[in-house]
């Protein structure tokens, strides 16, 4: 195909495959553990990190990771200690971080920062360095998903009974949320802060309609995530539409098909 000749398009396709895969794998756990809102909360807190990075002159990916991990762990600690309910904790953290980001934008006048790209994704602007970050996170996620396969399954299936039986569920929970935070940050380039939680939730939710087997669910969710990114990317190229939005709409379309298939059988 002709479009494969462009280097930016090659990077974009590779980025699509990687983000599609990590988001949809982590998404299986997020969906089964009913942490979808948590995912949205974590991604929104990236905004404060991104703007702070520009102000401080450091790579915004780094500050975004710090913000996401910090708010992810903060949310689970505050709600574990029962200071406020979890949904309220998520609301507080992400609106504070968004607010902080918007506040800082005021000081960035005159800079040429693509905030729109961070909010909604701009896959065509993916750099080689972004790809490197994505590959590292892909490696980390794959390692932990395999190494702690049984443990994560116990965590999402029945954390309480697993704790009774001696599983380190608090550690596993923090690890899962930490992995989600990393995944979200490196995926921002592709789908953006607003849309990344859709790419996490939709493939797993769609795959659930058509399988009753956990391993198949993991595989199928990944397949849906990757193909949504690839199909969405190609559509956005040919239709000249925003990449992040097209990817998420493609995933939603697949969700609809999967729902219909699941209803039939």
């Amino acid at each position: 195909m002709e479009i494969l000749q462009y280097a930016f398009m090659q990077r974009a396709l590779l980025a699509g495959v990687i983000t599609g895969a990590i988001c949809s794998v982590i998404g299986v756990y997020i969906v089964l553990k009913r942490l979808s809102f948590m995912g949205a909360g974590i991604s929104h807190s990236a905004f404060g990190g991104v703007t702070l990075g520009y102000i401080l002159g450091v790579d915004p990916i780094i500050t975004a990771v710090l913000f996401c991990v910090f708010s992810a762990l903060g949310i689970s600690m505050i709600s574990r200690k029962k200071i406020v309910q979890e949904d309220a904790a998520i609301g507080i953290f992400y609106s504070a971080s968004m607010g902080f980001g918007v506040f800082l934008i005021g000081f960035l006048r005159g800079y040429n920062v693509d905030f729109f790209g961070y909010l909604f994704g701009n896959i065509l602007s993916v750099t080689t360095k972004d790809l490197l970050y994505m590959s590292i996170v892909l490696g980390i996620v794959i390692f932990f998903i395999f190494y702690y396969y049984k443990e994560f399954l116990c965590l999402v299936l029945d954390d309480e009974s697993s704790a009774v039986a001696g599983m380190p569920v608090v550690f596993l929970n923090h690890l899962l949320i930490g992995l989600a935070a990393l995944t979200i940050v490196v995926s921002l380039r592709v789908v953006g802060i607003i849309l990344v939680s859709a790419l996490i939730v939709i493939p797993a939710a769609a795959a659930r309609y058509v399988t009753e087997n956990f391993k198949t669910l993991l595989g199928l969710s990944t397949l849906i995530g990757v193909s949504s990114c690839l199909i969405g990317l190609l559509l956005s190229y040919f239709l000249d539409t925003p990449s992040g939005a097209t990817i998420v709409l493609t995933a939603t379309g697949i969700f609809g098909i999967s729902w219909l298939l699941g209803k039939k059988s």
Binding site: F146, Y147, K150, E151, D158, S161, S162, G166
Partner: peptide, 11 residues
């Protein structure tokens, strides 16, 4: 899954 805590990670 009731056995999992005894088996240990990676096995």
């Amino acid at each position: 899954t009731g056995r999992y805590p005894l088996i240990g990670p990676g096995r």
